[in-house]
């Protein structure tokens, strides 16, 4: 029988504690147990980036992260990145520049872009392209996503 020890970590700034079996990835924990559905499941295999969250500030694929290994860490999902009122500058830029179409990839891009701009407040176009090259978007051709990130970085 798999043990279902309690798992505790900081989620979007608040401590949480819940049971979690070992053979469970963070994405399932977030979406199914914690009902935080902003983080999306596009492939479950590390090949789309829709499931990206921040773990201790690093953009991380929640579908390839064992939930039990975030014990004691800080996890920020799209829900936590979003200010209580209004939108973050990255989010605002995505809206203004039409960087969302179907929107299914969007939370993952917001997470990646947020982490990028924290680490590198004024990235070049090439740095942006590289940084988002683990996030798949089938709708936009990336053009408006790149534009939005540049705008959020104050590049125009």
């Amino acid at each position: 029988m798999p043990s279902r020890d309690a798992l505790s970590f900081r989620l979007n700034g608040h401590p949480v504690e819940l049971a979690c079996e070992p053979a469970r990835v963070l994405l399932d924990l977030l979406r199914e147990d914690l009902r935080l559905t902003g983080t999306k499941r596009g492939c479950d295999l590390g090949t789309c980036g829709c499931c990206a969250v921040l773990v201790d500030g690093r953009p991380t694929l929640s579908c390839l992260t064992l939930a039990r290994l975030v014990e004691g860490r800080a996890v920020d999902t799209i829900e936590g990145i979003t200010p209580a009122q209004g939108l973050s500058p990255v989010q605002r830029a995505f809206v203004e520049h039409g960087a969302t179409q179907c929107g299914f990839c969007t939370p993952g891009f917001i997470v990646t872009a947020t982490a990028l701009l924290r680490a590198n407040p004024s990235p070049s176009r090439a740095e942006i392209e590289r940084a988002i090259s683990g996030n798949l978007c089938r709708c936009t051709g990336y053009a408006k996503i790149i534009e939005a990130i540049r705008a959020a970085a104050g590049a125009d």
């Binding site: 590390g46 980036g49 991380t60 390839l64 990646t112 590289r130 988002i132 090259s133 683990g134 996030n135």
Partner: peptide, 9 residues
């Protein structure tokens, strides 16, 4: 290697 998101872990 892979993608930035994969390299992060």
């Amino acid at each position: 290697v892979a993608t930035p998101l994969v390299r992060s872990s």
